[in-house]
Amino acid sequence: MHFLKYHLLLLFMLFNSAISFGQQDLEKELVMPANKHEKVMATFKSTKLINGHTNETIYKHELDFKVDHRFGDIAGSNGGIRKFFGLDNSTDVRIGFEYGVTDRLSIGLARAKGANSVQQLYEGSLKFRLLEQTIDDHIPVAVTLFGSNTIAGVEASKDLTSATAYRGFTDRMNYVAQVIFARKINSNLSVTLSPGYVHRNFTAFRDQNDLFTLGAGARAKISKRMAVVVDYYLPFRNSDDQAYLEQLNGFKFYNPLGVGLEMETGGHVFHLNFTNATAIEEMQYLPETTTSWLKGQYRWGFSISRRFSFDRAKK
């Protein structure tokens, strides 16, 4: 019995060794490690598109320094050659820092001028990646939570109907919460959809303290390091209050729309964009955009972001 087994085995061995493995056959013998729901990287290149946030956060121990600028109206009654197409004015400026506590949680601190009467803004924010899209579509959509508190430092107004007639410190606080859904459809196209909520502790008379919003954005690569970015936000206003404010102030509310070009050079991300929104902070451009693309009230804007890493490479 043993003898027979031995012979059979030997025969098999001989047969086996007679086969010469070519490189193609050999490659079939490779055992590759199973990809356990590998995460999609770089859905977007920056934490923001133009006005709104993307699902991206800052990696652990990295710091993002970001400067945003919005100029005056390019065209319309406030623009044109006399205002050098808006470059004479600056509607808003923001300087912000974001730091990655973990790969999934970022904290942010920023100072913005503020575009309307509510000025001298200090923003603290938290951004958390709840879900990350995976390559095998085990998780098809990334979900990131964003929350911010913006405090207005501006001197309180004595006009009781104004947006800055603050009676105490808490009146100066404004909150924004957003759930950002994002999907990298392919290596060239990523999209976001972000329902959100804005609460302002104090507003102008009959302006809404609470507002639901919906945002959508996209990034389409036109070359390896350049992309077209666009985002649009829809605030859901109470029509009575909207009509009252529009009649009283002689303006109309518009939805913020931004279109821009994104350039990426290892470590820096530049945005050159056009938007009708004058403000940069969410709590301001979402409820208070009264400038329209169709009236020439859109502006140049740019943002520069630079990443610093604090993980010292061991030598």
Binding site: F21, L26, M32, P33, E62
Partner: peptide
Amino acid sequence: VLDGQTGTIVFKVANTSFQFKKKL
């Protein structure tokens, strides 16, 4: 995989498996 008789060898690695100190 290495063929012990002919010396033919194939080596393969997934590019996304490389880990860097700096995630960016």
